[in-house]
């Protein structure tokens, strides 16, 4: 065992060791019996619970519906954030009028809107899309607004002196220059979308990962809950990774690692 470890480079050790070590310690602490194993199950039990949910078919269907909700909400929220952010970032009038209205709503946590959303839009899919869209909108709007308003004036003057009209100025100079900001806002938006998803699915849902977390909480199936949290973490990481990959393709001059 030791010679095998010695052969590994420090970098590989740094990659390979932490997660297995963490899982091993967790397994030991859980099995020693200091905590109630039903409430603090070892990772091996969470894995078995995941397999159980896979066999039941609930895991895949819940993951599918949740990803669908996140994708639609994220696209709608990003579209609204970029559109309104461009407007408020370019126009002083809209920056003041719309900007102060948005700033008024921005600090209110999404969870505070759940009851109101159910009253306004009912328990259907629309209320879930709305909550995710609402949550994604703010970071995307803020970054778009900042990015658009910080485009260097020399770029604008140069483009104008070369005869660019308003449309070309916006699509070929302003938005490309602000893209790194917008992309950063959208990346935050992905994480926010998953938070809003769970909030949206915890009430009035009959499927989805958030719904399943709530159900497992009510019946104290913590092993299943941990399994679902792991799935959520993996989905979040995959979404983020896919976004970074796409962004790097789109902005090769401004790569993220």
């Amino acid at each position: 065992m030791i010679p095998f470890i010695k052969k590994l480079s420090s970098k590989r050790l740094a990659i390979l060791v932490p997660i297995p070590l963490f899982l091993l310690l967790w397994e030991i602490v859980s099995r020693v019996g200091l905590y109630n194993a039903a409430l603090f199950p070892p990772p091996s039990r969470a894995l078995l619970a995941l397999i159980e949910m896979l066999k039941e078919g609930t895991l895949l269907s819940d993951a599918f519906i949740s990803v669908k909700r996140v994708s639609i909400g994220f696209c709608l929220g990003s579209f609204a954030g970029i559109s309104i952010g461009t407007l408020t970032g370019r126009s002083k009038f809209f920056g003041i009028t719309l900007g102060q209205l948005i700033q008024l709503f921005r600090p209110i946590p999404v969870i505070a809107f759940v009851s109101l959303t159910i009253i306004f839009f009912g328990l259907g899919e629309f209320s879930k899309y709305f909550l995710i869209t609402w949550g994604v909108f703010f970071p995307v709007w803020l970054n778009t607004d900042t990015g658009i308003s910080r485009v260097e004036s020399s770029y604008l003057r140069a483009a104008q002196s070369l005869g660019a009209n308003t449309r070309r100025l916006l699509t070929e100079v302003i938005i490309p220059a602000a893209l790194p900001y917008i992309a950063a806002g959208m990346r935050i938006g992905i994480a926010v979308a998953y938070i809003c998803l769970i909030v949206a699915e915890m009430t009035g849902a009959s499927e989805g990962l958030g719904y399943r977390i709530e159900i497992t909480r009510l019946v104290f199936r913590i092993d299943k809950m941990i399994g679902i949290l792991v799935v959520l973490g993996v989905l979040g990481a995959l979404s983020d990774g896919a976004f970074v990959w796409f962004r790097n393709k789109l902005l090769p001059w401004h790569k993220w690692i």
Partner: peptide, 10 residues
């Protein structure tokens, strides 16, 4: 049936 989880007041 299609079970929906709701709090009683809702």
């Amino acid at each position: 049936i299609n079970l929906v989880n709701l709090k009683p007041a809702e």
